[in-house]
């Protein structure tokens, strides 16, 4: 693997690392889904994770905001170690935004309400201020005019941009993307990727599970290839694509890059 050594992690809020995963293992029943994951994400770093389906990529990033529980090892997010303590989990989730493959917008709320919900209820922001923040981010993802519609009235690409805006309204320090473009029609992939590139350029810490290799080349600081629940290869995008080391990586790249 890489030359990176992970220090025995001291919990430190001013840590260089945004996310530290140390010897993380996870099982679904008997099935060993994450094996010996060691990953240290620096602040402002953009990481793209790829790999065949069932390789544990989604599970890994879902462990970072505790949508999945790990059974062994340590995960430290923004200086807070994830344990069973609900308060800490809530703290972490407040700082970690997540964008899902299927958007997971709330269909009974308007776009604006989707965006203001968490700031109002979790951050106790006054409604007016929350709406201003929401409109600011909706403008950034270029759909302020849809604010009063319901998610079902928007196209997939627009919905995913709303999902990104919704996460940004909580001013997260880290953003997780779980195959954000996989459920979109080809015509709409670009608008979502452009939004993500914009975000990356502003220095957001991002972990992104995606098969958009163009995106990886353009913005990633590191590309991780996973298979069978393990990190198989991790490198800068240039090296990763030009000069893959592991057999599995070569095989995978030969199949997705034509």
């Amino acid at each position: 693997m890489t030359s990176q050594t992970i220090q025995a992690a001291a919990v430190d809020p001013k840590a260089e690392s945004a996310v530290q995963m140390i010897d993380v293992h996870k099982w679904y029943g008997e099935f060993h889904v994450l094996r010996d994951i060691n990953l240290n994400v620096r602040r402002g770093e953009r990481i793209v994770i790829c790999g065949p389906s069932g390789s544990g990529k989604s599970t890994m990033i879902r462990c970072i905001n505790r949508l999945e529980e790990h059974q062994k090892g340590r995960i430290i997010v923004d200086g807070i170690e994830l344990t069973n303590d609900l308060k800490r989990i809530d703290e972490v989730r407040r700082d970690v935004g997540m964008v899902f493959q299927h958007f997971n917008l709330f269909p009974h709320l308007t776009i604006l309400e989707n965006c203001t919900l968490a700031p109002i209820w979790v951050k106790k922001m006054p409604k007016k201020e929350a709406e201003e923040v929401a409109m600011h981010y909706l403008k950034r993802v270029k759909i302020p005019e849809q604010a009063n519609k319901y998610p079902g009235q928007l196209s997939g690409g627009q919905q995913q941009r709303v999902a990104i805006a919704r996460s940004l309204c909580m001013s997260p320090k880290i953003m997780l993307f779980d195959e954000p473009t996989s459920a979109l029609d080809p015509e709409m992939v670009k608008e979502v990727l452009d939004t993500m590139v914009g975000l990356a350029e502003e220095g957001m810490t991002m972990l992104c599970v995606t098969h958009e290799m163009g995106f990886a080349r353009q913005v990633a600081d590191r590309v991780i290839f996973m298979d069978y629940g393990q990190i198989v290869e991790m490198n800068t995008p240039d090296e990763f694509f030009k000069n893959p080391q592991h057999e599995r990586t070569k095989l995978f790249l030969s199949q997705i890059l034509h």
Binding site: N65, R93, A118, W121
Partner: peptide, 8 residues
């Protein structure tokens, strides 16, 4: 998951 990821 959407609700939890927002910290509700």
């Amino acid at each position: 998951e959407g609700a939890m990821s927002l910290g509700l």
